[in-house]
Design a protein around this nucleic acid. Structure first.
Length: 469
RNA sequence: GGCGCCAUAGCCAAGUGGUAAGGCAAAGGUCUGCAACACCUCUAUCACCAGUUCAAAUCUGGUUGGCGCCUCCA
């Protein structure tokens, strides 16, 4: 299994610290609003990584945090006239609902920043003691960036090249940093803001320290994989490395994975451009599995463009896989052949090649686009080799293969058993009778009636197939 | 200004040295009473220029175009 590591800029063979086990941390969202489709990309992709690893028998300890203390949450809370926790709790709940729709499995643990304050204070204290941090006059604690010799190793920047103008100074208003590159570990409260007591001042943690601490607490000083969107490389992840490695005196994460952005009509998604979509928006028009499928069709390190047309295309593509699966189940219900034939045994072997191809793609830095193409090849193979004479075992084996592969992608292709009400069943029977009598006018009439009810009929050799749309 | 990424058919998108996966859309065809599904057929020399090599979409240099980070934005 190879992983592209931002740290080394190379694909490396993945070797977990503890054989058979994976410690993985994914930076989660700040919960001040519904998550947008950009947030969904890392959630979907890294969940797929996790699923593949589990499929390969690795035990994954998967941590995704919720940042629930932050300027934007506070701003939202003030606007609504409620406590910040009301806002954050609400959007954590909504986020989990969206994750469910996207088939993103809950993490092993979802820590919240506000519940980890004491750990953060401890780490800050350690950094102060080791002279990697200092307390300013107003109680703000800063990280002494230049004290960490390897600063810049993740984003591959030279400390001296970093632009030093600095907005942070303007925001703070006071120049109390020793160096413009220093960043905040702890900041004093402002009127009306939530705060925690500390020896430096009543205040709250900076953003970067949260992840260092939550990662340490739930996964240990050294972890296998740390992941997130590419915008987090600098400064967020760079700062996490500086904090964790300075405090723990151990290498922090072995592999750093970053997904590229999702753009809308070739532009960065932003509220000001009016091209902002929440996952909830999409769910009103599509099954969220379509969004998931759409994202997995591209390589995670390439920017991905989103548009209505592309969603339609993704929907149709996925439909092809679902239809084939559906067809297998339909045949399974009608087949009388119990015994698998020699020919079928041979064909199953051939079909297994696609599973192997799928794995090879995933082994190569989780090339989901390539992996999905082998699923399509499998689908074609199935469509060509399956018919009403196929044996039960043959059908089941193929069905399982498709399900297994799609399950790694986090997509459920086997529809739930649905039933029709008696009235509809009677209509279908009536139509069959009409067809037998060659009364096609009546037959088509019935088909149209059902279509209006969202039921599509297909005539096959084995009988009528129906599906709800 | 600094650092970095990308450019493959109408659209999306794999492919990092040996002669272009897959999907969507369109067209023609087979099957079907029709439709749908499925199947078959058809669609590219990989932005441009120069170079390295027996051989390049794939390596090197340049040009053009697009994008990202350097702002607690995934």
């Amino acid at each position: 299994m190879k992983i592209y590591n931002t740290l080394t800029k190379e694909k490396e063979e993945f070797r977990p610290i503890e054989p058979g086990k994976v410690r993985m941390y994914v930076c989660g969202p700040t919960v001040y609003n519904l998550i947008h489709i950009g947030n969904a990309r890392p959630m979907i992709f890294f969940d797929t990584v996790r699923r593949y690893m589990e499929y390969k028998g690795l035990k994954v300890n998967y941590v995704m945090n919720f940042t629930d203390v932050d300027d934007k949450i506070i701003k939202e809370a003030i606007e609504e006239g409620v406590e910040p926790s009301v806002v954050s709790e609400r959007y954590i709940k909504e986020c989990k609902k969206d994750m469910e729709g996207l088939q993103v499995q809950p993490a092993t643990i979802h820590p919240k920043a506000t519940e980890e304050i004491s750990g953060m204070q401890e780490m800050i204290q350690t950094l102060i003691k080791k002279e990697h941090a200092y307390v300013a006059e107003d109680g703000t604690v800063y990280y002494r960036t230049r004290s960490f010799k390897e600063y810049g190793k993740l984003s591959h920047r030279n400390v001296d090249d970093l632009r030093t103008g600095n907005r942070a100074l303007q925001v703070t208003g006071v120049d109390q940093k020793e160096d413009p590159l220093d960043f905040v570990l702890w900041k004093p409260k402002k009127e009306g803001e939530p705060f925690w007591k500390s020896s430096w001042c009543d205040g709250r943690p900076g953003w970067h320290i949260e992840c260092s601490v939550m990662s340490k607490k739930y996964l240990g000083d050294e972890i296998d994989i740390h992941a997130g969107g590419e915008d987090l490389v600098f400064p967020h992840h760079e700062n996490e490395i500086a904090q964790s490695e300075a405090a723990n005196e151990k290498p922090f994460a072995r592999y750093w994975m970053h997904n590229a952005f999702l753009n809308i009509d070739n532009k960065k998604m932003s509220k000001s451009l009016g091209n902002f979509f929440t996952v909830r928006d999409i769910s009103e028009k599509y099954d969220l599995q379509v969004l998931r499928f759409f994202m997995l069709q591209a390589h995670y390190r390439s920017p991905l463009n989103f548009s209505a047309e592309l969603m339609e295309a993704a929907k149709n593509s996925l439909e092809r896989i679902v239809t084939a699966t559906d067809n297998l189940k339909f045949l399974l219900k009608h087949t009388k052949a119990k015994e698998i034939t020699k020919q079928e045994t041979k064909e199953i072997k051939e079909a297994e090649a696609y599973q192997k191809q799928f794995e090879e793609a995933m082994e190569d830095d989780f090339n989901t686009a390539d992996a999905l193409s082998s699923v399509f090849e499998l689908i074609k193979y199935i469509n060509l080799h399956v018919n009403e004479k196929s044996s039960e075992e043959f059908l089941i084996t193929l069905l399982e293969e498709v399900s297994t592969l799609m399950n790694i992608c986090g997509i459920v292709v086997e529809k739930k058993e649905e039933s029709l009400d008696i009235y509809v069943e009677q209509l279908i029977e009536e139509r069959q009778a009409a067809r037998k009598e060659k009364d096609f006018k009546r037959a088509d009439e019935i088909r149209d009636i059902l279509l209006e009810k969202g039921i599509v009929l297909e005539d096959t050799r084995e009988g009528v197939k129906w599906k709800k749309v």
